[in-house]
């Protein structure tokens, strides 16, 4: 009986602990919806002010109104299946194929690297070193190898997104708790059982951290590929708009690039929450711990 109360008592004790004597200044007490709205309005206001006083040329920096008009145009274009819709679809495909390739390849090779002594001792240092390289610099190479079509963009996206997945997967497998490993040894668990029942599940938070980084990086990869390698994706539309000094259109198209990234990230994060129901508080700690920039 005492245990029952112990169990139920825990959450209420937690929330009680949040009530402290210190309640912050009035700024800290503003409700989040209000503070977010006010801050957003403030940023738009500053933007509009800079535009109005022509701090920089209005050609180079469009105002918020012009940008929203352009965003509206882009949206109608997408909804009516115009060339923006085509670009969005092409880039989305590049991102998805790049992400899937990176995710599957990174996971499988990450398991191989993390599970073998040679992988941990010899391959891992190279991976970490490679991970620190500015990988976008390889874009012209991929364009030279795979041409101006979607393939070079997919390869570029996959290449950038691959590293966080393989590094985090291998690191996650290596981070397994030593005592629990000993427990499995004492149960005469074979290698496959230990991998399946202990190492992979406990590496999942790491793997998902890698996949979330990969979701963002694959958009970067696809766009860089398009900037340098042409094609008909959003990146090419942005490049062309910028060259003709239609910065408002550039901004509008970047919003749609962001949508691709956010949706993909959201899908991965949602899957993680479904799968890692047992993994509560440490979720944020692990995130992005082992991933360097693209």
């Amino acid at each position: 009986m005492t245990q029952k109360t112990e169990l139920q008592g825990a959450p209420s004790a937690m929330s009680a602990a949040e009530e402290t004597w210190y309640s912050g200044t009035w700024i800290d007490r503003i409700p989040q919806p209000v503070s977010i709205t006010v801050l957003g309005a403030l940023m738009l206001g500053v933007w509009w002010l800079i535009y109005e006083i022509e701090f920089v040329s209005q050609v180079l920096l469009p105002g918020p109104v012009e940008t929203f008009e352009e965003l509206w145009d882009a949206t109608t274009n997408i909804l009516t299946g115009g060339h923006v819709a085509e670009g969005l679809w092409i880039t989305t495909q590049e991102v998805i194929w790049g992400f899937l390739t990176a995710g599957i390849l990174g996971f499988v090779l990450g398991v191989v690297v993390g599970e073998t002594r040679l992988g941990r001792k010899a391959v891992m240092p190279y991976l970490v070193a490679f991970n620190a390289l500015p990988k976008v610099a390889f874009a012209p190479v991929f364009v030279a190898w795979f041409g101006f079509g979607v393939n070079s963009k997919i390869v570029m996206a996959a290449f950038i997104a691959f590293f966080p997945v393989i590094v985090d997967t291998a690191a996650g497998l290596a981070a397994v708790d030593a005592d629990t490993l000993m427990l499995f040894q004492s149960m005469e668990s074979n290698r496959w059982q230990t991998l399946r029942k202990l190492k992979l599940p406990s590496a999942l938070p790491f793997i998902f951290a890698g996949l979330k980084t990969a979701a963002v990086f694959s958009v970067v990869g696809a766009v860089v590929g398009e900037y340098l390698g042409g094609g008909h994706g959003l990146g090419e539309l942005i490049r062309f708009s910028a060259q003709t000094l239609r910065i408002d259109r550039v901004f509008a198209l970047i919003v749609y690039l962001g949508v691709i990234g956010i949706v993909l990230f959201g899908i991965v994060a949602w899957t993680e929450r479904k799968l890692l129901y047992w993994h509560k508080s440490d979720l944020l700690e692990v995130e992005g711990k082992f991933t360097a920039g693209a």
Binding site: T180, M182, K197
Partner: peptide, 13 residues
């Protein structure tokens, strides 16, 4: 042989 450590080493999932 039964064994147990300082940490419970339960599988959280």
């Amino acid at each position: 042989i039964g064994i147990m450590f300082q940490q419970p080493t339960l599988l959280p999932w």
